[in-house]
């Protein structure tokens, strides 16, 4: 209850650490080759073929776990043919953790092991959750570095779907 109230105040106060400040906004989305759940090194850029949410998460973060549920619902609501979700687990150094994480939380969108310095530095991931919103031209439109309420998530997704 208190946590929900806190989240609401946080969003109201507009304390988004990264929403308008990320140097990535307005630029082509950077991509990297990372291990997927089968331990293949894949450039996750190949999945950015439509408006995409890149979601940086890890295992010890409660808000992050909650956002996975929101992303699953968003994927169903907007349709996989219109919206791509990509997960990057910043705790994972190889496929094992990614595979177990996907199985536990029951989602099917691609996830990669993202505990690599160049990825974390480029995306400036010093904390999680972080959501990167990319439009159909592969331009980063928004970076949100905190929990999002579902209506805000949907509104931001609609913005990248329009472009």
């Amino acid at each position: 209850m208190y946590r929900l109230a806190g989240l609401f105040l946080l969003v109201l106060a507009g304390t988004s650490a990264m929403a308008s400040e990320s140097p990535l906004v307005g630029k082509t989305v950077p991509t990297f080759r990372l291990p997927d759940e089968t331990n293949r090194e894949v450039d996750f850029g190949v999945f950015i073929d439509r408006p995409t949410v890149i979601y940086f998460t890890e295992n010890s973060c409660h808000y992050c776990t909650q956002i996975i549920a929101l992303l699953k619902r968003a994927e169903a609501k907007f349709g996989r043919e219109n919206l791509r979700v990509i997960g990057i687990n910043v705790m994972a150094r190889d496929s094992r953790l990614v595979k177990a994480y996907k199985e536990e939380l029951g989602f099917t969108f691609p996830m990669f092991a993202g505990n690599r310095h160049e990825v974390l530095k480029t995306y400036r991931i010093n904390y999680v959750p972080v959501l990167v919103f990319v439009d159909s031209k592969r331009i980063v439109r928004k970076v949100v570095g905190h929990y999002m309420l579902e209506p805000d998530l949907h509104r931001t997704i609609r913005e990248i779907l329009k472009r």
């Binding site: 806190g6 989240l7 946080l10 304390t15 650490a17 890890e58 010890s60 973060c61 808000y63 992050c64 910043v90 974390l120 991931i125 010093n126 904390y127 999680v128 959750p129 570095g145 905190h146 929990y147």
Partner: peptide, 8 residues
Amino acid sequence: VHEVCGRG
């Protein structure tokens, strides 16, 4: 910023 999990 408070409501995040930092990596420090």
